[in-house]
Design a protein around this nucleic acid. Structure first.
Lengths: 153, 153
DNA sequence: TAAAATCAAATTGTGCACAACTTAATTTTA
DNA sequence: TAAAATTAAGTTGTGCACAATTTGATTTTA
């Protein structure tokens, strides 16, 4: 492994991925602005459109975000009348998140997002799927290290 | 294009890339902690190791970060004695950034980063390069839209 | 060459991201 | 079954990211 080589910015895959992530968010922003959503809020809605009702913990596992990020964001979204937060009666440590009618309805408007944005990725259908698969493979590998006690040192 | 399909979290390439970016940062963190650096600070050092002296504008173009992000970060790094900020005499709008001896020396310690981290990406050499290329291709496509006035609406 | 336009950096304000910690509830175990 | 351990959510504090705006310098142009 040539450490000198990989220390150059242009050869750092981590930088490319980090920059690409922000570039996609920038692409999405004008449309999300119309829906009055941020990108993380849109992701939170996405999992709620799929699962109806989730605890904060479950959302945290789906989005890889912790309660320190989710709690304040969900509170903001509650204020915006997109969702309800309700503490579980069976286990009072848990808080259930459920969409309001407004939150459910927003899905219709959000459908334009993939249609308007994905063409700008500059990828063929095949490239899109292959890239998705590769990145997911990478996430799985990374989580083996980052989600255990085997910290890299 | 099946918008319903692409609205599912698992099919969203943007989510994968966003999650992957954070997962890599998490992998890097224990090592960067030892160097007392954050990931964006490490990137700032990376471009300064390559270019010796840069204006804020030039760093902003290399890292795709604006002055609102860079100025406070560079001030923190100046306090940490990693770099100097000096306003240009020829054009007083510009501020030059240059590494201190401490900033230069940190490069030696940073060399361990790629060596220790890249193996955990779970990619072969070929896969690494292909992925790097694909992501860079994607960034270029995205910038055609995000870095012009043709906003997606 | 003086006004208008542009430019570079800094500032302000909002919203993540996340480490570290706290609180309160539930589960485990001695 | 009471103490210890674990768990879920919330809190606190720091550091990005970035839009929008401001400040001051330089360039363009009428």
């Amino acid at each position: 492994m040539d450490a000198e080589y990989f220390l150059k910015l242009e050869n750092q895959l981590c930088f490319s991925i980090y920059a690409c992530s922000r570039e996609i968010t920038r692409l999405y922003r004008p449309i999300l602005d119309q829906l009055e959503l941020t990108y993380p809020q849109f992701l939170a809605l996405t999992v709620l459109w799929e699962h109806k009702r989730l605890t904060v913990k479950e959302m945290s596992e789906l989005l890889y975000l912790d309660s320190g990020t989710l709690t304040p964001m969900l509170k903001r979204m509650e204020t915006m009348d997109l969702l309800k937060r309700e503490r579980s009666r069976e286990d009072e440590r848990k808080v259930f998140i459920e969409l309001t009618e407004k939150g459910v309805q927003l899905r219709k408007d959000a459908l334009q997002l993939p249609e308007k944005c994905i063409p700008h990725f500059g990828l063929s259908k095949t490239e899109y799927y292959e890239l998705l698969q590769k990145i997911n493979q990478m996430i799985t590998s990374l989580q083996k290290v980052t989600r255990t006690n085997n910290e890299v040192k």
